[in-house]
């Protein structure tokens, strides 16, 4: 009697958490839960978004499970069957950080960012440049003719210029909207 109990407990340890049968083509998740690869594959297919471990809801994915190879397992290659079980991962002792794949991905990831930034920055650039132009034109004039003028006059001039540019900005925005 105790022997059969032991036996059932032993096999239960290696049961797939989905089909409740002894795991075939077994894979194990990073969180330590055992599944048949076909069972887990089907679950991952059911939920393409937000893939979680069926047992503990930890994040899980095709690349984050490890195949288990026991001694004297099935003679047929599991990968011949559909769906294939993912390969085991062997980490190289020194990972090449700036690999060609990594660099490529980096450029690709940044490109759209640059693009959107350029478009977004265009009106600001326009404002900034026109402002500078005005400032350049205004400043010599001040120096030449209004040097003696009091600070009040100076402020008025500034206010006028800022009002002018506020209007310009409004008109420009309107034009942007119309176009």
């Amino acid at each position: 009697m105790p022997e059969t109990d032991d036996k059932s407990e032993d096999t239960a340890t290696f049961e797939c958490n989905i089909c409740l049968d002894t795991a075939k083509n077994a894979v194990i998740s990073m969180c330590g839960h055992l599944f048949c690869w076909p069972c887990l594959y089907q679950w991952l297919e059911t939920r393409p978004q937000g893939q979680v471990c069926p047992v503990c809801k930890a994040g899980i994915s095709r690349d984050k499970v490890i195949p288990l190879y026991g001694r004297g397992g099935s003679k047929t290659d599991p990968r011949e069957k559909l769906p294939p079980r993912p390969q085991g991962h062997r980490t190289e002792p020194e990972a090449d950080y700036a690999g060609p794949g990594g660099g490529h991905r980096y450029v690709f990831g940044d490109n759209p960012h640059f693009l959107s930034f350029g478009i977004g920055a265009f009106p600001f650039g326009f404002f900034a440049s026109s402002f500078n132009l005005a400032g350049g034109a205004g400043n010599p004039m001040e120096h030449q003719h209004r040097d003696a003028a009091g600070p009040a006059d100076h402020q008025m001039q500034d206010q006028l210029v800022s009002k002018l540019f506020l209007w310009l900005a409004c008109i420009f925005l309107l034009w942007l909207l119309m176009a």
Binding site: I18, C19, L20, D21, P38, C39, Q42, L82
Partner: peptide, 19 residues
């Protein structure tokens, strides 16, 4: 076809086991 039949047997097998 193959997946259909295998999922069908998985269904019954699992329900049997739960029962």
């Amino acid at each position: 076809m193959e997946t259909n039949s295998s999922s069908g047997s998985l269904l019954n097998k699992r329900l049997q086991k739960e029962l």
